[in-house]
């Protein structure tokens, strides 16, 4: 199936609108980029767009009520809300170390959710 997508390049502030025509997993045509740097970005965006995902997880008995988290790798764009939904259901007890794994294989993506800060435990 042939598909055309217009991608706004974010490599530099010019913001070229790059037209990419794809055939399943193949690039058919690429047009509109003013430089070479945009090509790789546009190909990835057209074939397999992914985003780093950052949000927070509820903490029990912590000095802060939340711990900030990120995905260990970029998440496929179309799975972002599925991953978020799973993260929202999780609650973790303090103490938490930065880098600590909070969710394994989130939403069957083979990607983990890890803490990006330390939250100390407080005694109530």
């Amino acid at each position: 199936m042939i598909e055309e997508k217009e991608i706004t390049c974010i490599v530099c502030p010019i913001g070229c609108r790059i037209l990419v025509r794809t055939d399943e997993k193949q690039i058919e045509k690429l047009d509109g980029n003013k430089c070479k740097q945009g090509i790789e970005y546009a190909i990835n965006e057209a074939l397999d767009p992914r985003r780093m995902l950052t949000t927070s997880v509820l903490v029990k008995d912590g000095e802060w009520p939340l711990v900030s988290v990120k995905s260990s790798q970029p998440v496929p764009k179309n799975k972002v809300f599925q991953v978020l939904k799973e993260i929202k259901m999780v609650k973790i007890s303090a103490p938490i170390e930065s880098g600590q794994k909070i969710i394994n294989n989130v939403a069957n993506t083979d990607i983990n959710i890890v803490a990006t800060r330390t939250v100390k435990k407080i005694m109530k």
Binding site: M52, T54, S68, K70, S98, T116, R117, T118
Partner: peptide
């Protein structure tokens, strides 16, 4: 290396 704000601060 791309970091989050809290990581950068740490």
């Amino acid at each position: 290396e791309s970091m989050t704000g809290p990581e950068y601060a740490t």
